[in-house]
Amino acid sequence: MAKPKVATTSLAGCFGCHMSVLDIDDRILKLIELVQFDKSPIDDIKKFTGRCAIGLIEGGCCNEENVRVLQDFRAHCDILISVGDCATMGGIPALRNMVPLQECYEEAYLKGPTVHNPARLIPNDPELPLLLDKVYPCDEVVKIDYHLPGCPPSADTIWEALVALLTNKPVQLPYELVKYD
């Protein structure tokens, strides 16, 4: 039987949650026995090659590209997991949610103390993904099946959840593995 496929992505995140996946140390060899990675920065596969059992989402949605990628994951994955505080509640990028978008642009490109922008232009190229009005947690955009909070969730948290799902057991994490920081 073919190994189940796992896909991962980092939306509005810092790749810290992906680092935490790698932090499972030598268990990564066991993981490779259990699963095959599909679309993921880990193997640099850019497009889904087929149906996936599990999708791990790091980061929330701060722009239209994040939304498209997230919807693509929802369409291709049986189980979608929000990994980390950015995916579950917006996280650090959501600190801009209290500031109107125009003010964010002006601070970043016009008024900021280290800004050098003699042309006084705010980038507006069609190639650039359009920013959303605010940063959205993943479950406000698509249905999410499991949340693994943490900044980042510990390697043990990710490992225990993945192994439970891959072996058809309920995801019941011990108390010390579910933390918001």
């Binding site: 947690p137 499991y146 693994l148």
Partner: peptide
């Protein structure tokens, strides 16, 4: 309390008020 009650993420949309 959220840990004790087993909350992985709140189920309501976030309001992000300016405080």
């Amino acid at each position: 309390l959220a840990y004790r009650l087993g909350i992985a993420a709140p189920k309501y949309p976030f309001m992000f008020p300016k405080r």
